[in-house]
Design a protein around this nucleic acid. Structure first.
Length: 884
RNA sequence: GCCGGAGUGGCGGAAUGGCAGACGCGCUGGAUUCAAAAUCCAGUUAGAGUAACAUCUAGUGCGGGUUCGACCCCCGCCUCCGGUACCA
């Protein structure tokens, strides 16, 4: 073989690994120490693998191959997040069943991943669309459906941690006696209201273009995350998951995880816990004859600043607030109605677009401020959201920017009640801007002089004592809208009871675990209904209806689950993907969980990771898993941008820009090892970085040099180069080898793959110039290279005379004694500036260093005419003369 | 606006308190070749200086500070990237 020909080598080893099942992980639970390394499994899109995919996959593959050589029992699986809209949209256009499209795409992805030589255990492959898989997705849904959250329950979990709050079986939910006396049906309805999976009639985000409703998390700037289609809000009956019940735990239990602070913060911000108070303002009976006898007779507001209660000069209800009709006077009714209509027509986008200009209408009604008895006018305005807090606020223009703007617009009084604390460096300029800092209370009656923190604590207590308020916690996080109107998602294992006329009674029945999976109905026509009516409503009568054993007529739930469902628990199924009696064997769960290293894109920082943690915690509470968190260590790979343009500016890869790099092409021209090596050599894993084809060329040349270092290029067949001999290595060769072993090992442990590769380049630059290259040294180097470029490494390992694969050869270790050099070059500084270098024995102490430095000619020249104030000598590092 | 991250040669990046620019790309020159590709060798921060070395000066976004010594730590700014936004 004259030159390194990657094609036959790469396909030979891929075949070898396949045939010998080299990377099969033993199914039995082992005594060996385990390592579970997981990639975020891909959505198998029609366009195939993107160069961004192999970045994370190569990183995990390096860790896995390295860890196997270190003797760990490694679990490294791959699967497919295969439900989703594109396959269904394709079905609408072509009539091809989504399953067929999905299977084709999976085949392409699988071929591409195999082409890159990743050491997955393909026996554990799974797709979320497999009935054997979504059977258990539906089963977990039933667990969630069967659970209510007891926020007062104190318990110690299998992890030994004491917690307050637990998801408990619905049959343990205490039923109030008045409900109990109302009969069995009332009890069922009461239970349904408390389940973690429940049906709600609240306004939701309906996206006509996608033909489905979307979760809050799937909406960006008022448009759909996918496709940027407009979204409108309308009330619909939808499934919700009570993720807010777990808000505190989802935020707090992030602490012990090895995740970047940035991602933890994003999750905490998304959860958005805030502590404040709820305060009741009594509604003032109308003065113009309109009777005000309706209950409730007070407006409840939520505030994080109860210390500013004395500064309240008006109140605002969200336009959708139920009390608007009650409080609006007849004079104001027309104006209020008009405003509400306008607000309801505005999309969320419009509402945020107009963020600067405050609008609103006076209702004519008033309420009483509980702290001072003042009559406060009540307005409606769309800057108050019905979906947060109580949908009503007390407005304190002096100390809130939004209220300030509103008050300026409508000429409402601005009353300062907080003064800057002395020495805080803040100033209050109430004539021009709101003062939103904390400080000292003023104009607040008996509370004057209290600090913001003390005032808050005191008034919260006082309000509670008076029965007009209490401490309250609020979350930005909403319950998770869990139903979609599409075909290509998991059907719900739920039936609705029908009355004699065929109308739903509102009562539900769950499928039994044994009857799962609920399969998709056969359909020919995949066109969306164009209305919020789900696709599955077009299914056959047999699929849709049945009569239960007790004679009750039932209709199937026709919504389907969102794409997130399948990815919420796939890491569990990988541990035991063939189990037909359980979603995971408990012993296997105990052994493999948690995932030790999870690598994927930052785009899943809130959605997938939050949902998945939520499901895991429900399973934890119900005793199905033993760890409170699924992913111990998380690393987000940086985005790979396209090639920089002539101005050096690199942009996101996209079809429209025409700068997408196809991994197939790269592998065709340079081979899989080069692609893997390049993606790791580009820069730090977590950093965003531009693609440069010339860089691929660089690592490709490096592999050629490594090949020539070992193989005789001029020979007809693959044989060792003449310089490769069976001799004892020189001291220098040993030192370079052991330095490289140390550096590469440390770098892999730190996931610093770019520097590991540069160390191997240094090694090959050195060794290639050696006239005699000891086999034993080269063999160990090939092992170091093998996690990064496994194909060429396996081949060279063979050429060096080792039979079989090196996948389980013990990882080379270094001898610290060999790293020590006899003499070292040490810089000599004058006032911190480099002036000379001296060569001294490596073990020289500070005094010897200084003496050697003083003996140096350059140093003496620099010392002339100067006074030495101080000498700093750090053995092995440097000498610094402080002179005047 | 708020929260996070980052600013180092022509480019990707290395060095987390001790020789700034490892390694790679690109570029320049040379060797090899009939020629090319491939490969190998040398050079490559800028400026001053030298026949050539030597040597000197400046230099890690900007301004200040701590230190014998700062890309690294502290304070104040600027720019770029990511997240988020009427959340009371």
């Amino acid at each position: 073989m004259p030159r390194y020909d990657f094609k036959p080598v790469e396909s030979r080893w891929q075949q070898y690994w396949d045939e010998n099942q080299t990377f099969r992980t033993e199914d039995a639970v082992s005594e060996k120490k385990k390592l579970y390394v997981l990639d975020m499994f891909p959505y198998p899109s029609g366009s195939g693998l993107h160069v961004g995919h192999p970045e994370g996959y190569t990183a995990t593959d390096i860790v896995c191959r390295y860890s196997r050589m270190k003797g760990l029992n490694v679990l490294h699986p791959m699967g497919w997040d295969a439900f989703g809209l594109p396959a269904e949209e394709h079905a609408v256009k072509t009539g091809t069943h989504p399953r067929e499209t999905t299977n084709q795409n999976i085949a392409t992805f699988k071929r591409q991943l195999k082409m890159l030589g990743f050491s997955y255990d393909w026996e554990r492959e799974l797709a979320t669309t497999d009935p054997d898989y979504y059977r258990w997705t539906q089963w977990i849904f039933l667990q969630i459906f069967d659970t209510w959250y007891d926020s007062e329950y104190e318990w110690t979990g299998p992890d030994g941690v004491k917690r307050k709050g637990k998801g408990r079986p619905i049959n343990e939910l205490p039923i109030p006696s008045d409900v109990k006396t109302s009969g069995a049906e009332a009890v069922r309805r009461y239970q349904d209201k408390h389940r973690l999976a429940y049906v709600s009639d609240a306004p939701v985000n309906w996206c006509p273009a996608l033909g489905t409703v979307l979760a809050n998390e799937e909406i960006i700037d008022g448009k759909s995350e996918r496709g940027s289609h407009p979204v409108v809000r309308m009330p619909l009956k939808q499934w919700m998951l009570r993720i807010t019940a777990y808000g505190d735990r989802l935020a707090n239990e992030l602490d012990p995880l090895t995740w970047s602070e940035a991602i933890k913060l994003m999750q905490r911000n998304w959860i958005g816990r805030s502590v404040g108070a709820e305060v009741d303002f009594k509604i003032v009976p109308s003065e113009n004859g309109k009777p005000q006898t309706e209950t409730p007779s007070s407006i409840r507001v939520y505030t994080t600043r109860p210390d500013t209660l004395f500064g309240v000069t008006y109140m605002v209800l969200a336009p959708e607030h139920p009390l608007v009709d009650t409080i609006t006077t007849s004079e104001q009714k027309a104006a209020v109605d008009e405003y509400r209509t306008k607000a309801s027509l505005k999309s969320d986008l419009d509402r945020t677009d107009l963020a600067k200009d405050k609008t609103g209408v006076f209702t004519g009604g008033h309420a009483i401020n509980p702290v001072n008895g003042e009559k406060v006018p009540v307005w409606i305005a769309d800057y108050v959201l019905i979906s947060y807090g109580t949908g009503a606020i007390m407005a304190v223009p002096a100390h809130d920017e939004r209220d300030y703007e509103f008050a300026k617009t409508f000429g409402i009084e601005i009353r300062q009640v907080v003064a800057p604390a002395p020495g805080s460096g803040h100033a209050a300029d109430i004539d021009n801007t709101a003062f939103t800092e904390t400080g000292i209370a003023v104009n607040s009656g008996k509370y004057n002089g209290l600090t913001t923190a003390d005032f808050k604590a005191q008034i919260t207590k006082d309000l509670a004592a008076a029965g007009v308020g209490k401490e309250a916690v609020n979350y930005r996080l909403r319950d998770w809208l869990f139903s979609r109107q599409r075909y290509w998602g998991e059907p719900f294992p739920i039936w609705h009871e029908l009355d004699a006329d065929g109308n739903p009674t509102g009562l539900m029945r769950a499928d039994t675990a044994e009857s799962l999976p609920v399969l998709h109905p056969h359909m020919e026509d995949f066109k969306p209904t164009g209305t919020p009516e789900p696709m599955l409503a077009k299914a056959t009568q047999e699929w849709l209806f049945k009569t239960d054993t007790d004679g009750v007529k039932l209709k199937r739930e026709t919504n389907s689950m969102p794409q997130w469902a399948g990815s919420c628990w796939y890491y569990l199924r990988f541990c035991d993907n063939k189990n037909s009696t359980n979603f995971i064997d408990p012993a296997k769960e105990k052994y493999w969980l948690p995932v030790d290293l999870y690598i994927g894109g930052a785009e899943h920082a809130v959605l997938h990771l939050l949902y998945s943690r939520f499901w895991h915690k429900v399973l934890f509470d119900r005793g199905h898993v033993s760890t409170p968190e699924p992913f111990q260590k998380l690393v987000n790979q940086g985005m790979i941008l396209g090639e920089p343009d002539e101005n050096g500016k690199a942009e996101k890869m996209s079809k429209s820009r025409g700068n997408v790099i196809n991994p197939d092409e790269v592998v065709k021209d340079y081979g899989a090892d080069s692609l893997r090596l390049y993606e790791m050599f580009m820069g730090p894993l977590e950093q965003t970085k531009p693609w440069q084809m010339s860089g691929v060329e660089g690592v490709y040349r490096f592999l050629g040099r490594v090949w020539r270092m070992i193989v005789d290029e001029r020979a007809e067949t693959v044989k060792l180069a003449d310089a490769v001999v069976d001799v004892a290595p020189t001291d220098e060769q040993l030192r370079v080898l052991h330095k490289t072993i140390k550096a590469v090992t440390d770098d892999i442990d730190r996931l610093s793959f770019n520097t590991a590769i540069s160390r191997m380049m240094e090694f090959s630059n050195f060794m290639s110039s050696q006239e005699a290259r000891p086999k034993v040294v080269l063999s160990q180097f090939v092992q170091l290279l093998s996690p990064f470029a496994p194909h060429i490494a396996e081949e060279l390992w063979n050429v060096l005379g080792h039979p079989n694969t090196l996948a389980y050869e013990p990882w080379p270790t270094y001898d610290p004694a060999l790293l020590v050099e006899d003499s070292v070059e040490v810089p000599v500084q004058f006032n911190g500036k480099l002036r000379s270098k001296i060569v001294v024995p490596a073990n020289s102490d500070a005094a010897a260093l200084e003496a050697a430095a003083r003996a140096d000619e350059q140093v003496q020249k620099n010392l002339e005419g100067k006074t030495v104030v101080k000498v700093v000598a750090v053995p092995g590092r440097m000498v610094n003369f402080v002179v005047k």
